[in-house]
Structure formats: structure tokens, C-alpha cells
Write a protein that binds this DNA or RNA. Structure first.
Lengths: 213, 213
DNA sequence: TAGATTGTTAATCGATTAACAATC
DNA sequence: TAGATTGTTAATCGATTAACAATC
């Protein structure tokens, strides 16, 4: 069983950026890359890159750099991108639809196998090639499909109920797009993608910029 | 001209969470709220809340707490949520469509006034009640509409060109959803919303969880 | 050997948290 | 007055960065 080290959250968040830079480097036929080049891509100093990568092991060669393909594969393995992750998505509004159809996710091993909505108009249809079920079927389907991840794209009001339902069904990783702080048991990993909240912080910058000029 | 203090990024990111908690508190007719209650909503200790809010001034009363409505208005003002921010969105795919239609943004003062795409099929149509123009018209329309913010939802390949175009047109705040590191001049504020990269970090957690159990 | 670049140590920086005097 | 809660100071924690010996 492969060992996976603990890694600081900010370091983890930079790995996908390095990974993409490596893929592009590989396309260009470059066999070796330096921490300097990776740092430029991520907007951090080379020392930060080396520190980040040091959490995964000794991956480079002093005086030379990192072997492009090897490092890409190591990152891919570390983040588990080659492993299929079975997910369900609840809330087939505009955003839910967009995420269900997003090809970029599949390339990272995410397979959204079922959609749920309480609108009878949508239930029974297919969206982005995936079946839509009623929200009353979440528990049942999660178990029969072996889903381990749940994506919430319902409006704020319904989000906690959906989360509860997912947790009850045994899901232990939730990616929440609803603009609401959810309460989940300790063993459940909750990642919030709160676009309205993000907009609010961007709004601050816009206003600041307006006052400056 | 109102003064806006510098505020650490993590503190700024928590303000919208406090703000939403305040709105709910207000709905429930509660006139006073404590840092303790706000902290619970955001998952941080009360001391963190008080420190965060202290960047905006002395907003509470010792021994009592914060006046709900007053604090909500202060946050709203600080983040500029009541001010209209004119934006354009480039890339009318699934995600672009979803963002263009997202009602939550309007509540925070974002007004997306024009969409752009290079697909002739889409140009000339209306999507979510907003006109779609050809990408060759970005500069012209940004200026005539007075847009100060740009949202990028094109595929990775085209993102840098779109950003360049926006910057040339005078846009100085860019919200980028394309999975690509963009290069912009120093005076431009760039906020990345890289969902594929986020998925990669979540994938790490899923795999870790799998190994644990 | 000279030049380049790694991994790691130590210093720096900045954010979080605990503690408490001041206030209501 | 007793109890509650603020704003702020100081201590703690954790991440970033600079510097450099080790390595190629």
C-alpha cells in the first residue's frame, strides 16, 4: 500500500499547477525541468517549489533538475488522478449541468455517475449522458453505484438536507457549491466552493480599485 | 471618500460568511450577535472573528456584542456589495451560461452586461437575457458599456488571448475560470477559480480516505 | 574542474489563538 | 455589583523564503 505523506494545504493546492506545467513541458518534448520554471508557472519562488515537492520525497537531481515525465507521474499518483472516483451530483440547475458536462473533470479521474433533482420534469431524463433520479433515491443509488463523493449544487435552502442524505448513504467526501455553511460529522471531508462568497471578495477589490483611481 | 483598510486575505475571505450569518440572524429578528456565534458559522474561534472585524474599525460593544443590522451594513459597505459592478463574460459554454444566469451574483451587485463567444451560432442570440457578441468586439463593447470586470470561461487554450484583449480594453479585475495560469500586468487583479485544480486536491483526499479504511 | 541545481536548515514573515484589561 | 463580551496585546503556530552544503 503506497505511503502518502502529510502535506500543508497551500502546498497541496499548488501541485495541480505544477502538474499542468509538466504536461505542457512534456508536450514540448522537454525531458528536464527546474524548480525555477515550475515556480514561474505557479507564481512562487523556486525554493517554494522544492519545499512543496520535498513533501513527496526526493524527486530531483542536484545540478540537473527534475525529470519531466517522472515528476508528472509522481504527482499524478500522489493526487490519485489516475484512479476513478465515483461521484453523484445533486441539483441539476445551470451550475449542476455545467459541472456534469465538464470534460476537464474526467481527465482527473472523476466519474459522475448519477444526477439527482426533486423536479419531476427532470427526473427520468438524461443530462450530459447521465441519468437524473429523484432526490428520494440518493441513499439507494449511492450504495448501488458505490459512490464515494458527493457534489452539491442545489440552492442554499436545501443544501444541508442533501448533505445529511449523502452522509447517511456513506459518502465521506463532499464538494459543496451551495452558498451555505454545512455541518457534517468529523469523518466527512467537506470542501466548499462558494462562488458568491468569492465574488464578494472580488467586489472588495473592484471597489478599492475604483477609489484608488 | 470612504476609507478602506488593508485586510489580510484570509480575513477578507471570511467576511462574506459572517455577512450571510448576519442576514439570517436579522431574518430571525435578532438585534444583537456575538463573535462566538459568528465564529461558529465560519468554523473559527471567536477571537478570530473579533480580529477580523477589528480591521474595519471598532464595531461592537464590550459586554454586549455586535448590532446585527449595523454590522451587516458595515460589511456590505466594506465589500462594496451594494455598488453595481459592470462585467463582461467571455466563453459561453456550459459554465459561462451557468454563471451568466446565476441570480446569486446580482444580489452582490454584479451585473454581467454582455457575453462573448467566437461561435457564430451563438453570436447575436440572447442567453440568460444577455446579448452574445463576437470575440472581436470585446474591446469596443467593454468601453461603450463601461465594464470594469471580466470573467473568463473559455477553454484553457484561448484564455491568455482573452485576458490580453480584456486588459487592452482597460479591464483591471479578471475572474478566471479557465484551467490555465494567466500572465497579466501588475496593475490588473487576477483571481483564479480553477475547478479542475480544486478537484485534483479533493482527489487527493478521496484517495487518502480510501487507503485509510 | 566550474557551473548548475537540488534538498534542507534556519530565519523571516504573517496569521491564528489565548489571555485579559476595559467596557457595558 | 456581577456577568458578559469586546478590542488588543502577546504568544504560538505554520508557511514562506534565503542561504548553502551536497551533488551532479
Amino acid at each position: 500500500m503506497p505511503h502518502r505523506a502529510a502535506i500543508p494545504r497551500p502546498s497541496l493546492a499548488r501541485l495541480p499547477i505544477y502538474y499542468r506545467r509538466l504536461l505542457r513541458h512534456l508536450e514540448q518534448g522537454e525531458g528536464i525541468i527546474s524548480s525555477q520554471e515550475l515556480g514561474t508557472a505557479a507564481g512562487v519562488p523556486a525554493a517554494q517549489v522544492r519545499k512543496d515537492l520535498s513533501h513527496l520525497g526526493e524527486l530531483g537531481r542536484a545540478g540537473v533538475g527534475y525529470e519531466t515525465r517522472e515528476l508528472a507521474l509522481t504527482l499524478e499518483d500522489f493526487m490519485g488522478l489516475a484512479h476513478t472516483k465515483i461521484a453523484v451530483l445533486v441539483g441539476v440547475g445551470n451550475l449542476g449541468r455545467a459541472l456534469a458536462a465538464y470534460a476537464g473533470f474526467e481527465r482527473y479521474g472523476l466519474r459522475i455517475v448519477a444526477l439527482f433533482d426533486h423536479d419531476p420534469e427532470k427526473v427520468g431524463k438524461q443530462i450530459a449522458g447521465k441519468p437524473v433520479f429523484g432526490t428520494d433515491q440518493i441513499a439507494e443509488r449511492v450504495q448501488s453505484l458505490g459512490a464515494e463523493m458527493g457534489i452539491i449544487t442545489v440552492p442554499a435552502v436545501g443544501a444541508q438536507d442533501v448533505a445529511d442524505e449523502m452522509v447517511k448513504a456513506g459518502i465521506d467526501v463532499i464538494w459543496n457549491f451551495a452558498p451555505r455553511a454545512l455541518i457534517v460529522p468529523d469523518h466527512v471531508i467537506l470542501e466548499n466552493e462558494d462562488l458568491a462568497a468569492r465574488l464578494a471578495t472580488i467586489s472588495y477589490h473592484v471597489i478599492l480599485r475604483r477609489l484608488e483611481t
